[in-house]
Design a protein around this nucleic acid. Sequence first.
DNA 1: CTTGACCTTCCCCTGAGGTGGAAGGTTGAT
DNA 2: ATCAACCTTCCACCTCAGGGGAAGGTCAAG
Lengths: 123, 123
Amino acid sequence: MTAKALRYYETVGLLPEPDRTASGYRDYPETVLDRLRFIRAAQAVGLTLGEIRGVIAFREAGRPPCAHVLELIEGRAADLDTRIVELAALRDELRRLDERGRTLSPDACSPGLVCHILNPAAH
Amino acid sequence: MTAKALRYYETVGLLPEPDRTASGYRDYPETVLDRLRFIRAAQAVGLTLGEIRGVIAFREAGRPPCAHVLELIEGRAADLDTRIVELAALRDELRRLDERGRTLSPDACSPGLVCHILNPAAH
DNA sequence: CTTGACCTTCCCCTGAGGTGGAAGGTTGAT
DNA sequence: ATCAACCTTCCACCTCAGGGGAAGGTCAAG
C-alpha cells in the first residue's frame, strides 16, 4: 500500500477525498484505515477494484452490501471452478506433449516446422 | 490470424521480413504457413510470444529447439500446478467466506468496515 | 476511367493496477 | 540557513497481444 496506490484509489473512487491541511497535504481520518483494510481483504479474495467500488457504492448509498458481496463471492468461486478445470486440462495436455516429445528425436525435427513437438507435420 | 497480427509478429521477430513485390506488397513464401501453424500451436499451449521467439531463435541458429521446448513445456506445466493449487485454495476460501457470510446479519454489518463478510472487525 | 477492395506505414488505444519521475512547495531537525 | 525527507500535481509508462483507423498507393473488374 504505497502513497501512489492511495492516490490511485482516490481517483477511481475507492477512497473519499480527504480534508487538506492549510498547506494542501492530505489529512486522512482514522476511518480510512478500515476502508483500506476492506480494500485489501476484497482484493485478496480476487475482487477487482471495479467490483470493490460497487460494494462501497452500496454502503455509501446507506445499504448494507452483504447480499451483493455474497453474489460477488459466489460468482468468483464459480469462475474459479471453471478456470481451474481449464487450467487442469491445459496442464494435462502439456504433460501429454511432454511425454510424447521425449520420445521424439531432435534429429527428426523439421526446421520448417520450427519444432515437431508443438507442430507435428500436417497429416 | 489477421493481417494485423502478421505484421505484429513481424515486428516482434516471429516472422522473417518477407520479400516485397515491385509495388511494395509483402510477398509471403509458402513456408510462412508452417511458421504460423507453429505459432498458433505454441500459443495454444500457453507459451508467450516471447517464449515462442526464443524457440524460433534456436531454430534459426541452426539447432533443433526440442530440448528447449520440453523445458518450456515442463516449466509451464509446473507453473500451472502451482497456479491451480493457489486458485483452488482461493476458491475454497471463497466458499468458506460464503458459508460464514450467510450466517451473518446485514443489520450487524458496520458501515465503517464496508462489509463484515470481507472485513471482520479487528479483534 | 472509375470503383471497390486490397495493400502500405504510422500512430494511438485497449484493460488492470498501479509505478516512475519532473517540477515545485512544506516541514522538522540541525 | 540549510538540508533531507516529505508532500503536491501532472504526465508518461509498464505488461500482452494485438485492434482501429487515417492517409495514401495499387490492382482487377466492369
